[in-house]
Amino acid sequence: MRRIETGLGLLGAAALVLAAVLAPWVKFVLTIALAKGIAVIGILLLLRAGQVSFGHALFIAAGAYTVAFLAPVVPDAIVLLLAAAAVATLAGVLVGLFVTRYREIFFGMLNLALSMVLYSVLEKFYSVTKGTDGIRVELPRVASVTLEREPYEWAIFAIALILALGFAGLTRIYLDSPMGQALAAIKTREQRLEFMGIPARRVLLAAYVLSALMGGVAGGIIAMTTRHVTPLLAYWTSSGELVFIAILGGAGGVLGPFLGAVTFELVRIYAGAAVAEAWQMILGAVLLLVILFAPGGLWGIIAHGAGRQVGRRRGAAA
């Protein structure tokens, strides 16, 4: 399955580049989708441990606001992304030390509560955050080069794509390692881990911090793509969106989050254009269909099909 994932990942990346070349308007949508996919990989890590975070938009907002605050001072995309990752990681450690003491609904709701605290802070401290007006993000340089709008968009798209492939690959390696496997063990027999000498809470904390880092990077990309950040980035519906994408794409593989994110963004745009007042209903219907007929999400359908193909080939070779 690892080879299939690698192959499909590269194929998917090529398809996204082709789509962006053929329809330049879609580049913006795909960059946002890639960013959200990176954040949803973090959700996937926590889902492996049986935990759902309903507040992970907190880290997206942390990354996005870091970029917005620092862009006038350090106007370089790479440095800004590193700063977004660092701030979100620090936030992940602080929040994670607290929330990883809890499980299931308490874990989910505490994350939600903390993200709403950040939302309120961003909304109310107008003198610093500009409240609901948000902050416009200065156009940063990319690798010390000042770019016009079109090449800049391509550069951010390329950065998002490279980071998406990188995080997907790293997550696959992580999930196959003892640390990653111990995450799944938290879901089934957490107590046994302790009796084997494995600190379950620290294993979950490590995954949580990693997921926060990815959330921060995603927020940084979103800020540099939309070039405007508002408190809505931390609102609970943004966190719900991430969980929605995780279920839509499927948590069985590292490509699921990207499949889900791209599908989500495209369905949202087309549904919004077709039925402006009822696009959420169409998204809801899509999710309902996936839950009813493909519980493994979109990735589950592909993995099932790929598995059958491999089986057929092996059967033919035998």
């Binding site: 196959d176 390692s177 640390m179 496997q181 111990a182 063990a185 089934t188 494995i198 490590a206």
Partner: peptide, 27 residues
Amino acid sequence: FTEHTVEENVAMAVAAREGVWSAIKPL
């Protein structure tokens, strides 16, 4: 660990003894 194979269950114990903090090498 019911979602793992028997081999993975025991490998997890071996890893626990030798250092579960390996996040790079496969179980």
